[in-house]
């Protein structure tokens, strides 16, 4: 089956800014890989539960106990931009 890929939408969801040319290249490559990957659809899987974990284990918890946090200066030393104890980023412009 021919696979339709809205590659610009996918790149936008993944927050990767690509040129038209790059988008076209990736679309072609994804098409080949997905053609192969689509073989999973050939196996009969009716009534088969999906695995989301290779081990059949449940309930790994931690107790509600406070542990030391990281040193802020050490954390912010890795930030591309920080000020007054905050990480700083460009505005979000959600509205508009």
């Amino acid at each position: 089956m021919p696979i339709e890929i809205d590659i610009a939408h996918v790149a936008r969801l993944a927050r990767i800014e690509l040129s038209e040319r790059q988008l076209a290249d990736y679309r072609a490559q994804l098409g080949v890989i997905l053609d192969h990957a689509a073989r999973v659809q050939e196996l009969p899987t009716e009534g088969v539960a999906p695995t989301s974990h290779p081990l059949d284990m449940v309930n790994a918890f931690r107790e509600d106990i406070v542990r030391p946090s990281l040193d802020r200066d050490e954390v912010l030393s890795q930030a591309p931009d920080a000020t007054d104890g905050f990480f700083r980023v460009p505005p979000s412009l959600d509205n508009e």
């Binding site: 700083r88 505005p91 979000s92 959600d94």
Partner: peptide, 8 residues
């Protein structure tokens, strides 16, 4: 938000 110059 819409007139912000940066976000902390």
């Amino acid at each position: 938000i819409h007139s912000a110059t940066e976000t902390l």
